[in-house]
Design a protein around this nucleic acid. Structure first.
Lengths: 351, 351
DNA sequence: TGTTAGCACTCTGCTTTATCGAGTGCTAAT
DNA sequence: ATTAGCACTCGATAAAGCAGAGTGCTAACA
């Protein structure tokens, strides 16, 4: 690949900056006027022709200005754009939003998603961390009333799930204590993924004399485990897309966009932490896997606590996105989330 | 008010039926052709002029057909429309959708919302029942690890909430049992709304020797109570509006519509069961409280179990709505929900 | 007296045509 | 290498023309 000389880069940067700002194809005159490059429009015109030939720009039609191509954006985010500084108000509002509700990890993430869409003005999405590697800390069966027991499971990251089960009426309270003890003994310290259906069956076989009591309780346990193991997706600011002319002009695009956000499994895939290797990952247009968002860009950030606890959140919008601002915001909130989760686990007193 | 003679009613019905179907202003010829009224278009034309003068119809402009006014729709839903029969497939799919996941009341409602939007093809919304009148059945404090206790609250409708709290490390497990007992003694049988901040404070004063332990736990309790007391709203099929030409033509309308769905407090108000007196309630266009949906209709159904447990769900869409089908669907699901919740409480074995 | 056929008139939506202007690419001069 | 100048392109917008659906009115009819 031919390298771009410095001047071409500066011009490309100016064009993209402008296009991100206006959503209109940008012409040579505009660049010559707005940005102080000390060049005439004719020179810029020539350079633009070059840049187009190299694939960084495209022309909607002859006699229109240029718009960046995906390749252009790629170069832009990799080398050209300048780092955006969040205002003190922005950092402050992010911080305080995350400090309020710290009783549960899911709430924290939901809150993070909400604040990120407010700060960036795009649509945000977040997924709760994958907890397959977390371990079981406490399992408890509590009698609620004759014939109803509450099964409670707590993991080492203090994620709590519960499940109400029915048992024969005859169960005496003491018995639940015994079962709790056995379950703790058997399962404590195991990771979520280690507790397979098989393992549950084994336990059932082993102590399965009074089967009609144990069975529903074990079912309750595996139900809780399943709950722990199903990450939740939060979405915010979906209607923000109506702020962008590219969506406003073309209702079909708006609809497709919103439809895809409705598809839970796609959201899961987009935020799948196994696929995101970098702390901040940017997917531009065609780089996206799903047809319906090939005219959008997706910026995702992963947060990480220790080795096992990783999750991600991101922003989706038109390829003409304020990458710079989005990246800074996500990076900041990423760190902030890690910090807050640590607090949550270590056990700071709540605010 | 002048009463409509039978023929006028039949014509009005035909017009509205047609308009609901096509979304196009309907002319006299169309009615004469499609519906077998044994009248010429000229006669119908005269009648239409009358109906317009009476306020049941409106004309977008001279030389266009007529469209129903809100008043027209009102008459239609009150007297004219014929009862819609759900197909066996529809009733079956509703039933089975509600039978699968019956471990928690919230899930049931969420599921109901989802299925109703699928059946009706409109946007659906549902709110979990108001639980102010439910009573506390069990309160339990479980030690998780030194310095961390789990507070669990269960109501008589088997709604479970929990909250993790930090306490000084020194707490011995036995102590949590003692506190659980005291809390049960004090709070058991009280309704959610009876447990005020004052009451909590009283308890704190009464047994508040080791304040630094008791306080966080009591806070946890009131946190749980607060959770029980905050109904959740579920939304589904938001993007269904893109199926309707009135929204597709006018992107602003689509945006306003979606924006309003984003406002949690408005959703709460729309579904507020105190305001909905009838089992099936229809609000047409201007009858709606909120400016932004004055061109929409809202059909809500309330479900009820015993005296205290009431909630509602509904459908929102263009005033040109298939009222007949929506009403039948909602009525059916309404009854189905009541039935399932009863099951849930009575304690049938799960499927 | 209620119904209907006929007709002139209205108004929208669509297509066609004309015009404007932003922006380009090329050439020739600096 | 840069730039001024110019002819050319093409979309966007406005104006004009046309077709069709629907109305209201009048007059004839049963």
């Amino acid at each position: 690949m031919v390298l771009l000389d410095d001047r071409k880069k500066r011009i490309l940067q100016a064009i993209i900056d402008d296009y991100i700002d206006t959503a209109e194809p940008v012409g040579s005159r505009t660049i010559a006027r707005k940005h102080e490059l000390g060049l005439s429009s004719a020179t810029i015109r020539n350079e633009m022709a070059d840049l187009e030939e190299m694939g960084y720009l495209a022309q909607p039609h002859t006699s229109a200005g240029r718009i960046p191509s995906d390749k252009g954006y790629r170069l832009y985010v990799d080398q050209l754009m300048k780092v955006h500084q969040l205002t003190p108000e922005e950092t402050e509002s992010i911080k305080s939003a995350l400090e309020i509700k710290i009783s549960e990890i899911g709430q924290l993430i939901r809150q993070a998603s909400s604040i990120i869409s407010r700060v960036t003005k795009y649509t945000s999405m977040a997924i709760t961390p994958n907890l397959k590697k977390s371990t079981l800390k406490t399992i408890q069966v509590i009698p609620i009333e004759p014939g109803k027991q509450l099964v409670i499971v707590v993991t080492n990251n203090n994620v709590v799930r519960n499940c109400l089960v029915r048992t024969p009426v005859s169960v005496v309270p003491d018995y639940t204590v015994r079962i709790s003890n056995i379950l703790n003994e058997k399962l404590n310290g195991l990771t979520i993924e280690q507790v397979t259906a098989n393992l549950i069956n084994e336990i059932e076989d082993e102590i399965g004399v009074e089967n009609d009591v144990l069975m529903p309780i074990l079912e309750g346990v595996s139900d809780c485990i399943k709950q722990v193991d199903s990450p939740e997706v939060y979405l915010d600011g979906m209607t923000n897309i109506f702020n962008f002319p590219e969506f406003r002009r073309d209702i079909r695009r708006a609809r497709d966009f919103l439809n895809i956000l409705d598809e839970k499994y796609i959201m899961h895939k987009l935020l799948d932490t196994r696929k995101i290797t970098k702390e901040i990952d940017i997917k531009i247009g065609e780089e996206n896997e799903f047809e319906e968002i090939k005219e959008c860009s997706l910026v995702t950030a992963t947060y990480k606590i220790g080795d096992s606890l990783v999750g991600s959140l991101g922003v989706i919008g038109p390829t003409r996105m304020e990458y710079s601002k989005v990246v800074s915001s996500l990076d900041f909130i990423r760190k902030q989330i890690s910090k807050e989760i640590r607090k949550l686990l270590e056990g700071e007193t709540r605010k």
